[in-house]
Structure formats: structure tokens, C-alpha cells
Design a protein around this nucleic acid. Structure first.
Lengths: 216, 216
DNA sequence: CCCCAGAAGTTGACGCCGTCAACATCGAGG
DNA sequence: CCTCGATGTTGACGGCGTCAACTTCTGGGG
């Protein structure tokens, strides 16, 4: 066992295939969306036979699931980054509202900068695939952050208590709907590029207006 | 040519294949979503060879497009039905707002009662498929109705003029996002059935609150 | 030291898919 | 009646996901 571990083993066997596959799958998804994640192509890119993937994934869908989790994590990072960029000085209510707004911006930043991954994050091939582990999203980091921000807003009095229930879902719906309609829906194709930014701000404005009460 | 047209011609040739194919494709989409629209299966159901479809559709995607247009039309019908069910008596502002709200309800009624068709209506296989005919959606009946309803609300003074631009897109985003998240997203799987209705009302409430000003 | 069990990857096959080129068939108009 | 164009069929190709059977590599115990 003198010098064996350093050589990069050109013809696979012992490089960490699983990670390599996941990475290749992510790249495919990034460029072409969920439909582009094709098991045989992933294997080809990694330089391995198609069936090799079955050592690590029970089926092709599981590979897509892996990408989905990666994408969801990146989405959460994007939101967190945007929220943390908001300066904390000034009226606490204003800060809370600004942070809430920023979370929406972070969501859309990710959706527009990585549309393929975003689409993959929300793809479910079949209408049903088990009562489910319950793990994949509502429990996800992104949702938790968003929920916490709404609590902040509530705590500063900038939201009426009766408006709090269901607020995360309404907010999520607005921002997600806008992303979806923009990325592969009609907005993306029919809206002049210069209006996109305007409309995006308006959507978030209307959401914030619906959720909060004016300051002072 | 005495009695030829009445006989139903069992072995295709001259029955209107195109319609039969479209209809079968719609049924597939209805039950299984866009992924279930498989050319060979459609042909099989109609009792015809797979390649027969190529007389009427240049490619399998064109068949899906056909379903998409049907689905979009049904969506518009559902919205129109809900809007027209609103009684016109009382304060015009209230009526306009009620009609606006009803359009959202009609949208969601369709999405939840025909999830497969709804998903198909908003599916686009590839990220790009031409600068596009521009026809498919923003010009669609549904969008026009929605836009008109917003104008009504504006005219009754229940919406501030500066809130009007971008309003249809914000509204569409909210309702569409809610539908998508509910049908094949996390809301559908993680939300107790009894809360669905509540959350749905809240989402629409928040939207209306964001778009309008209170009456009186 | 060697050797062998099991992990890691390959081969070849199957049935499904979309699509194409070549062929068969029907029915209306000269 | 006979031909010609529209309509549908056959058979093939390559790509896909998946499976069973095979090979090759590697580390740890005799």
C-alpha cells in the first residue's frame, strides 16, 4: 500500500462515482431542465456504462430526486443571501418588511439565474409516488426561512394577527407563480424584456401590500 | 353513391382521425398529465397504426399542443362560468371585486377538478421552440377576461390607478402559483385536506387586499 | 504472501418510445 | 373503368430505462 491512493485511476473503479453522477446530472438539469436528466447521457458523460448508475440509484427518477434536493438547497441559499443583505438599522417594522421582500427577491433571483435547476426542483414525474417521506419541501430550509420572516413582521405589528395564518402559502404562491409563468410560461415569451423587472416589482409590491399594514 | 356515407367504416379510412386522435390524447392528459400523452398509445386507443398520426401532426409534440389549446379553452370557460355566476346587484365596486375574486375561484376550480389538463395547459417541453407565434396564452381568452375584470374594478374606484399596471400578472401569479404548488407541489402532499380550502381563501383574500382599496 | 469474497462496473438483451421510407388500399373524378 | 392522390400500414432505426449474467478489481484473513 505504498503509493496506490494518489494515482487518479483513469478507468473507474473507486473514484466516487455517485458524486460524479450527481454532478453530471445537475449540469444536465442546469442547462436543459428536468427532461434533460437522462440516465444514459449522465453515465456517458462520466465515462461509465449506463447500468453502473444502478449501484447507487434504484431508478433514474432517484437521480432526478438527487438533483432536486441540490436545487432546493441552492434555492434556500439564494433566499438566505438576499435576506441577510438587508441592513438591520432603522425601524424594526420596516426592517422586517424589507427582509420579507428580500426573501421573495432571493427566490426569483435563483429562479431566473438557474431556470433549469429551478424547474427541476419542482418537478414530479408522476401524480402519485407514495404517501411520501414528507421530507422534500414544506420542511425545507426555504420554507422555514420564509415562515420565520413572517413571524418577524407580525411581531413588529406590521401585520394583523388574523392575517398571519396561511400567509406563507399566499406569499409562496405569488412568487412561485410569477417564476413559473416567467420561466416556461407565457410571461417569458410575450413580455418585452424591459417590462419584466417592472412587473416583478409590482407583483412583490402587491403581495406585501396584501400581507402587511402600512408603517406609522 | 346510394348508401355509402352512413355506414360507420370500421377499419379506419375516412372517419375523422384527427379529431379521434385529439380526443384520445385529451383523455390521456386528463388522467395522467402531459407525460401520459404518448403518440403510440394514442394511436393504439383509436385503433390505428402509430404512424397514421403523422398525416395530421408533424410530430408528437404537436399533438400535445393540441391538447394544450383544448385545456386552455376549458380553463377560460371555467373562469367565465364562475364570473357570470356573480349576481350583479348592489354596489358596483363590490360587484366588480366579487367578479374579480370569482375569476380566481374559477381558475382554481378548473385546476383542481382537471389537474391533468391543467398541467398540460402549462407544459413546454423545451426551453426554446421558436420566437413563437405569440398566440398561445397571453392573447388567450382567460387572460383577456381577467384583464377586463381589473378594468372594471379600476372604473368603480376600488383600485388606485397606479396599482393597475402589472395587476393582471400579479393576480395571475398568485392564483397560478397556488394551483401549481397544490397540484404537483408540496402543498398538495403536505397540507391536511381540511386546510386546503382555508388556505385557498386566504391566498385570494391577500391578493384582493393587495390589489384593491376597501369599499366606502 | 496469496487468495478469494464481495464490491464495482460491463455486456447484451428486452420492450418501450418517436420517427422515417417504402408500401398498400380506398374512393372519387376524368 | 381506371387511374391518381389521400389515407393508413409495415418494417426498420436509434435512443431510452431496466434486468440478469458476466467480468474485474481490491482489501483483509488464512
Amino acid at each position: 500500500m505504498a503509493t496506490p491512493k494518489t494515482a487518479p485511476r483513469d478507468r473507474y473503479h473507486h473514484g466516487d462515482l455517485r458524486n460524479a453522477l450527481t454532478e453530471a446530472a445537475c449540469e444536465l438539469a442546469r442547462v436543459g431542465g428536468p427532461a434533460a436528466v437522462v440516465l444514459r447521457e449522465v453515465a456517458r458523460r462520466v465515462g461509465v456504462s449506463a447500468t453502473a448508475a444502478y449501484r447507487y440509484f434504484a431508478a433514474a427518477d432517484d437521480l432526478v430526486d438527487e438533483v432536486k434536493h441540490v436545487a432546493l438547497a441552492r434555492l434556500a441559499e439564494s433566499i438566505e443571501r438576499a435576506v441577510n443583505a438587508v441592513p438591520l438599522e432603522g425601524d424594526p417594522g420596516d426592517v422586517a418588511v424589507a427582509r420579507l421582500r428580500a426573501s421573495g427577491e432571493g427566490y426569483l433571483d435563483f429562479a431566473f439565474s438557474e431556470p433549469g435547476l429551478f424547474q427541476t426542483a419542482f418537478s414530479h414525474e408522476e401524480i402519485e409516488h407514495a404517501p411520501n417521506e414528507g421530507k422534500d419541501f414544506a420542511e425545507s430550509a426555504a420554507f422555514q426561512i420564509f415562515s420565520g420572516l413572517l413571524d418577524e413582521v407580525l411581531a413588529t405589528g406590521r401585520m394583523k394577527p388574523e392575517a398571519r395564518p396561511g400567509a406563507e402559502i399566499a406569499g409562496w404562491s405569488m412568487v412561485h407563480g410569477f417564476a413559473v409563468l416567467s420561466i416556461d410560461g407565457p410571461l417569458g415569451r410575450h413580455l418585452p424584456e424591459e417590462m419584466k423587472g417592472f412587473v416583478r416589482q409590482r407583483a412583490i409590491d402587491i403581495l406585501i401590500r396584501g400581507l402587511t399594514v402600512p408603517g406609522d
